[in-house]
């Protein structure tokens, strides 16, 4: 259950961004969560009220977009979703792979005024 710590870190990052942009109110955050990030969207949603409590984002809505965990097999070159293939290549069985997408959590958009 590290989602609360992740959200606290995100609040600090957004605090810095909105200060630079001269923004006073944030109505909505659009966040991309990768399937290979180790971060669980459901726990992010549950932790958000606690992470935003008594901050400038207490009333801010959190929208999460899940990004598929796409990898490329270093053995045969097949590109596939690692989560649905149990972290091994469906063609050659290798678990040596390069992550192409879905290993991060990104602040995509900040809706503000």
């Amino acid at each position: 259950m590290h989602e609360l710590g992740v959200l606290n870190s995100m609040v600090h990052t957004i605090e810095r961004i909105v200060k630079e942009q001269n923004v006073t109110e944030v109505s909505k955050l659009v966040i991309e969560v990768g399937e290979l990030s180790g971060i669980v969207p459901r726990y992010l949603e549950q932790s958000w009220p606690a992470a935003s409590y008594k901050t400038f984002m207490e009333k801010t809505e959190l929208e999460l977009i899940v990004i598929p965990g796409i990898v490329k097999c270093k053995g045969c070159g097949r590109v596939f979703n690692a989560v649905y293939s149990d972290l091994s290549c469906p063609d050659c069985g290798s678990s040596d792979m390069e992550i192409l997408e879905g290993d991060d959590m990104i602040i995509k958009e900040i809706l503000c005024c």
């Binding site: 600090h12 810095r16 959590m105 900040i110 005024c113």
Partner: peptide
Amino acid sequence: MKDFKVLEIKTSVFADNNLQ
């Protein structure tokens, strides 16, 4: 009606921690 704007950020949630 408030004038809303969208900031396209595309930055990691860990950006501030990485900076620190």
